[in-house]
Amino acid sequence: MSTAATVERPSKELLSFAGYLYKPAKSGLRAREGVLNGRRVQFFKGKSALNALTKSEDGKPSKFESREEAIEWIQELLDFQLVVRCDKETEASHQLRINPVQSFDEDAYYAWLYEGSQLMIILGGIGVVAVVLAGVMFPLWPVTLRNGTWYLSMLALALLGLLFVTAIVRLIVYVITIVAAPQGLWIFPNLFEDVGFFESFVPLYAWEQPKDAKISGGASTTADKNEKKTE
């Protein structure tokens, strides 16, 4: 592994490692938001980074077998100033200041100076400019294209209105049934759950699961919450 003394720029391996640790979806490291020199940054604790790099979760192997190896890589992030060691002004504050000692300590805090790949930001900026230009030049569009855009916008508004109507109707039905029966009836019980588009409309209806069954079942997944007594 290269060091800052012999290489002017971080290696591809180190940048890849920084990208891995930077993204919570990959490493599991949850960073918090703080302010460093008037700039909003993401920061984390050294111990949390070590745990994310050396502990296996959900059957996935850990990034490193030993904490010593993980510390070496984090120290290299410090050497290339991809992260910087910081101190909190107060324990409850998110105001940070740079620590003069830039060495790794698992009880210290570290702020990201690395911001990840800029490709998506660049593409997003290009997309925003393209949409704005397209809107400004709308009067110059061909008649058929303008008519098609109008019909698509009306269709989108109709679908949005249908969603609002469905939400209101299902709530009214639930209130009526929970008064008339021990359990409330939900139409499209998965409508606002974190599932796919088609799964949101399956099943068509379901009775709400009793509270005592939820308690006895303990912690449950989204599918468990939606498991109701259907006819």
Rank of each mutant, 00 (worst) to 15 (best):
L185C: 07
L133R: 06
T222G: 13
K214P: 04
F198T: 13
R40S: 08
V195L: 12
V175D: 09
V132G: 08
Y22R: 08
A156W: 13
S56Q: 10
E231F: 12
E106H: 09
L21H: 02
P24R: 03
R40K: 13
I122E: 14
I122H: 12
I98D: 00
G161V: 05
L96M: 03
T177C: 08
G217H: 10
L155E: 06
R170Q: 04
A134S: 14
T3V: 07
R170N: 04
L133Q: 04
L29A: 07
W73Q: 08
Y22D: 02
L77N: 04
A31Q: 06
E65H: 13
T144G: 07
L185E: 05
F80C: 02
E89W: 00
L82W: 00
A134F: 11
M137R: 15
E227P: 01
E106K: 12
I187H: 04
A52M: 05
L171W: 15
S200C: 12
G28Q: 06
L152N: 06
N147Y: 08
K63F: 11
A130G: 09
N51W: 07
A156L: 15
S200T: 12
F164Y: 07
V35E: 04
A5P: 05
L159K: 09
S103Y: 09
L140S: 13
A18T: 00
V7C: 15
G161K: 07
E57N: 14
L159V: 15
S2A: 13
G46Q: 05
P210A: 03
G19R: 09
S93R: 01
L50Y: 01
R97K: 14
L119I: 12
T166V: 12
R9T: 10
S48Q: 10
I126M: 14
E208I: 10
I172F: 14
F43H: 01
R39L: 04
W150P: 02
N190A: 15
N37Y: 00
E199N: 14
E199Q: 15
V83W: 00
A31I: 03
R97F: 05
E91P: 07
A223E: 15
S66Q: 12
D105R: 13
L21Q: 01
F192V: 14
L145A: 14
K228W: 12
M120V: 05
P142Y: 06
A223S: 12
S103M: 11
I168C: 12
K211P: 09
E69S: 14
V128P: 04
K23P: 00
F80Q: 02
P189A: 05
G116A: 03
P182R: 05
D224T: 10
Q81V: 01
P189V: 05
Q75D: 02
V136H: 10
V84R: 01
T177P: 05
E65D: 14
D58A: 14
S103K: 15
G124L: 09
K63L: 02
P210T: 00
R85P: 03
N147A: 14
C86N: 01
L21R: 00
L157K: 10
V165F: 08
A219R: 08
P61N: 07
E208D: 13
V41S: 00
R67A: 12
T144V: 10
T54A: 03
S27E: 06
V84M: 03
D107R: 11
R39W: 02
L123T: 00
G184W: 05
T166Q: 11
A223F: 10
D107M: 06
Y22A: 00
A181M: 11
W112F: 03
G127N: 06
A223N: 11
E106D: 10
L157G: 08
F201K: 02
V84F: 01
A180N: 08
